[in-house]
Design a protein around this nucleic acid. Structure first.
Lengths: 337, 337
DNA sequence: TTTCGAAACCAAATCGTTTTCAAATTGGAA
DNA sequence: TTCCAATTTGAAAACGATTTGGTTTCGAAA
């Protein structure tokens, strides 16, 4: 059913029908009601592609997804979906073809030129991320989930990674630990840098010297958690506490401790960062896991909301949200013995 | 840069340019090359929305995502992305607003009417799933990931859940186990039914009576894995083996066993279904986990491919793929003691 | 030289909306 | 009754591509 046909059935012009459905004021309430009602009855819906061509609006937010298929991703999107449902805005997943830097810039360029999305959400930016400069230059509305210190105005939402790790590390020192290891995410991203800062900062305040033997970084996998933790704990002068980057990492760390006959929370303390997954909770681990916590799903919801605001005209340079991170103490942390 | 403008710069008509870029034969190779080259140089790209309006093709595949935000989802999509990259086809995530049945049918109806996607991929269908009948009736190309026995032609790809669980259960019986528990997914979906069939079937062949006290079902979470396993193992006549529905469930089962002082692989055998996640591998668990294995990511890739074939005109009724599931034996299974 | 067919190109219609600008209707005041 | 402003409605021009149905060009055959 097309607009023209539908309008004829109603004995109205396409103009009026279009206006009635789009909520313009210059149409009487009585006609509007009739149009709305008949639209449902006769099953008329505007052709999205025609609307998009005419208005220039696409009705979709692009989310760039790395090849890795991180487990965070589904949660973030589920959060976005929560906000976007009923908003007539879709989520378009943009697969990142390649790690190749030049290709990646091309991807963004093409994405903008092809006008398939109204806005973009970008994850895990680098400190000086040229993608941000590019999107800004191209005039595409975008929001960064994470942070960058590049000197270009941009909207962002980030959690306080530095503070989170600083507090976690400090707490471990409060418990008497002085040799504390940290497993970070892949180097390059700002969040990894922030976590590193938080860690070093906490040590420095207490006058504990930084030991490069006690830090490692890589993807957030169970396997790397295990391997790094093993290598830490087998050192001649092993750490008595470990700060882990993610829940998956923590699983590996627990396993490493057990494999060496060490009891988590007694022989070795562990704190991890928890994005709050419905299928794997820190509270349920054994022993229950002390964690710095911030809901990925909530971040997704808020990011979607902020993007909508951006599209509604709010200035990108006034959208900056830094979310505090909770530190939840459970059984995996205990006093140094 | 618009087509008209671009064509003028080249001294050609829009017609010829359009044809040159779309690979039509009635344009000389020499002009085609020139057009292609200049398009890159001058940065001309057809406006997607105009193309879509004119051709009726949207260039997007819709994937319906449940509210739960399952961890499988990211893997499946990463797989799809692998196939779709460079295909000029996007992935559109369709959030499922509500569990309400009527609403869900409405969602599909609106989705079709709004013409935002060329095809739909649906997950976890029910045995008699009216959504399938609806999509068929509405003439929307779609592919079902999973199976339904509804009497309507439809394309599907599924893994052999029944066979997988049957083999897993049989293997446990080969090892001498006779009391075998199973943790299934949420009842309703066909895959849960198939797994149940596989389980009962295996028991029946050996003449072991089905005990309702030994089965449970629910979301695939660590927590439920733990709770169900605990309740099984604390029964007066506890099972000596457990078949678990997912990796997360298995984590809970391991935890439950440990919490009762039981050693997995010796005191209690465990087999789980593994969708192959890059961040959590059965091989790395301690003890390593015996599993029925099938890659979710590969399924995503293949599903995307099949949808493209569907859109290219291949008949839905000839697209049926049943993937075998590997049974990988590791340390978590051992002879009955 | 003329004729013909294939090869290469083009003008204009079309896809289904939104929106500008103009016309018609209405209702109250004069 | 007449007039005017405010309220409703419409006709037609976009939006930017694809595609139908020609027209031109060119070389070879007649």
């Amino acid at each position: 059913m097309k607009l023209k046909e539908f309008a004829k059935q109603l004995g109205l012009s396409p103009t009026t029908v279009s206006r009635a459905l789009s909520g313009y004021p210059e149409v009487s309430e009585i006609t509007r009601a009739r149009v709305a009602e008949e639209a449902v009855r006769l099953g008329y819906r505007p052709n999205v592609n025609a609307v998009r061509l005419k208005t220039g609006r696409v009705g979709a937010i692009g989310v760039v997804m790395g090849r890795a298929g991180e487990f965070h991703f589904a949660e973030f999107m589920a959060g976005m979906a929560e906000q976007l449902v009923g908003e007539d805005t879709d989520i378009l997943v943009i697969p990142l073809a390649d790690a190749n830097y030049e290709e990646e810039m091309q991807l963004y360029r093409r994405l903008v030129e092809s006008r398939r999305v109204d806005a973009i959400i970008m994850h895990s930016p680098r400190p000086n991320d040229e993608r941000i400069a590019l999107l800004h230059k191209l005039g595409m509305p975008f929001l960064v989930h994470g942070r960058s210190d590049i000197d270009v105005p941009h909207a962002w939402l980030d959690i306080d990674n530095e503070g989170a790790v600083r507090r976690a590390t400090s707490h471990l020192m409060d418990l008497g630990h002085t040799r504390i290891a940290m497993i970070n995410g892949r180097p390059g991203a700002t969040y990894a840098l922030h976590r590193d800062n938080g860690y070093r900062n906490a040590l420095q305040v207490r006058g504990i010297e930084f030991d490069p033997e006690l830090v490692a970084s890589g993807n957030f996998t169970d396997e790397l958690g295990f391997r790094f933790a093993r290598s830490f704990l087998e050192q001649p002068n092993p750490p008595t506490a470990i700060v882990a980057g993610s829940m998956m990492t923590a699983l590996g760390v627990y396993r490493a401790a057990r494999s060496l006959g060490l009891q988590v929370g007694r022989d070795v303390s562990v704190i991890a960062h928890d994005d709050v997954f419905p299928y794997l909770s820190a509270d349920n681990m054994a022993p229950s896991l002390s964690a710095t916590r911030s809901s990925m799903r909530a971040a997704g919801t808020r990011c979607a909301d902020l993007v909508l605001q951006l599209l509604a005209g709010r200035s990108a340079s006034e959208i900056h949200e830094l979310w505090p991170v909770e530190l939840i103490l459970r059984e995996s942390t205990g006093p140094m013995r």
